[in-house]
């Protein structure tokens, strides 16, 4: 003790930091990453590697040389963005497309707004949607490459279950095994492969108090109820709720993307409104829109109304009935 340290109260601080929170998100994503690598093999590893490396590199270069801010690479947020972007792409995506996605995600969606905490839209989704619109052919190439295990998988499937349903109607998806899909067999982006892996991540995040369940559960509930009503009315035209919950990256989006701190509402009720909005827009796009799936679009659209939701929804204050 040389000189006494003096500062305003409180004098203690939680051990949770931005870094530890982001690290928890990475840990929660690991099951999904492992499953996707196991089933999609080297090409998925390449996508993941390119995506994470370019996101981290871009973050470093932009904060250091363009924004002249303290470097924020150490907080893992770029790693999370890179991971999510990779998991939102088909495992066959060429490396240069992944890189363009990273440029849009970090450079455009995150840094132009001022970096961590300032962006209006979820960077990974902006990157993904940009690629979907710019490179429709590559982005819907759902050929399944040879993985490390599971060689028996349908390796020439040309479309996602949702795509099949959009093209060929309800008849085209008959014979899909929901139990299969729950574990490892959802066609589509790399991260959607296993519902169980994603749910395991969700439970981890909840246990570590990284996220609250309101947003995720309200999205899933809205999707289930909305599709349930339509399915009950006309099961010949509309797909059933379980199918809708398991496909199209809904779990990935609702657990990891919609709950992004920066681009979701702060209050619990705001989160519910946000989730219901995402669920509704997703289902409207799926049933009536031109795209087979709409989670990314729904999240982007609802991202844009978050400031409004924050303005309306406030926490319940003490002594103010």
């Amino acid at each position: 003790m040389e000189k006494l340290l003096v500062s305003p109260s409180p004098h203690l601080h939680t051990s949770t930091s931005t870094k530890s929170l982001m690290r928890d998100v990475v840990i929660a994503l690991l099951p999904a990453v492992v499953v996707s690598v196991l089933f999609y093999g080297w090409s998925e590893l390449l996508v993941l590697g390119v995506s994470i490396a370019s996101c981290v590199l871009l973050e470093y270069v932009i904060t250091k040389y363009l924004l002249h801010k303290p470097c924020s690479v150490g907080d893992y947020s770029a790693v999370v963005t890179g991971l999510l972007l990779a998991l939102n792409l088909p495992s066959t995506t060429p490396w240069w497309i992944v890189f363009i996605g990273a440029v849009v995600a970090i450079g455009v969606a995150k840094m132009t707004f001022g970096g961590l905490g300032q962006n209006l839209f979820n960077p990974a989704i902006v990157g993904r949607v940009f690629l979907l619109i710019s490179f429709p052919a590559q982005m819907t190439d759902w050929t399944r490459p040879q993985g490390f295990i599971g060689g028996g998988l349908d390796s020439i499937s040309g479309a996602t279950p949702l795509g099949l349903a959009k093209e060929g109607g309800i008849a085209a998806i008959e014979g899909l095994d929901y139990m299969d899909m729950l574990f490892y067999n959802i066609g589509g982006s790399a991260g959607e492969l296993s519902a169980i892996a994603l749910i395991a991540g969700f439970i981890y995040l909840l246990c570590r108090r990284v996220i609250k369940p309101y947003i995720t559960l309200s999205i899933l509930a809205t999707v289930a109820i909305f599709s349930g009503i339509f399915w009950a009315i006309d099961p010949a035209t509309y797909t059933d709720p379980v199918f809708n919950l398991l496909t199209g990256g809904l779990l990935l989006g609702s657990i990891f993307m919609a709950t992004d701190y920066v681009t979701s509402p702060m209050s619990n009720w705001g989160g519910v409104i946000f989730g219901v909005g995402i669920g509704l827009i997703t289902m409207l796009i799926r049933y009536f829109g031109a795209y087979p799936e709409g989670v990314s679009f729904a999240i982007l659209i609802m991202n844009s109304v978050v400031p409004l939701i924050n303005k309306v929804c406030h926490a319940k204050k003490y002594g103010r009935a």
């Binding site: 000189k3 006494l4 340290l5 003096v6 500062s7 305003p8």
Partner: peptide, 9 residues
Amino acid sequence: PRTNEYGGY
């Protein structure tokens, strides 16, 4: 001379 150290905002 400084007699203590300030550690707040």
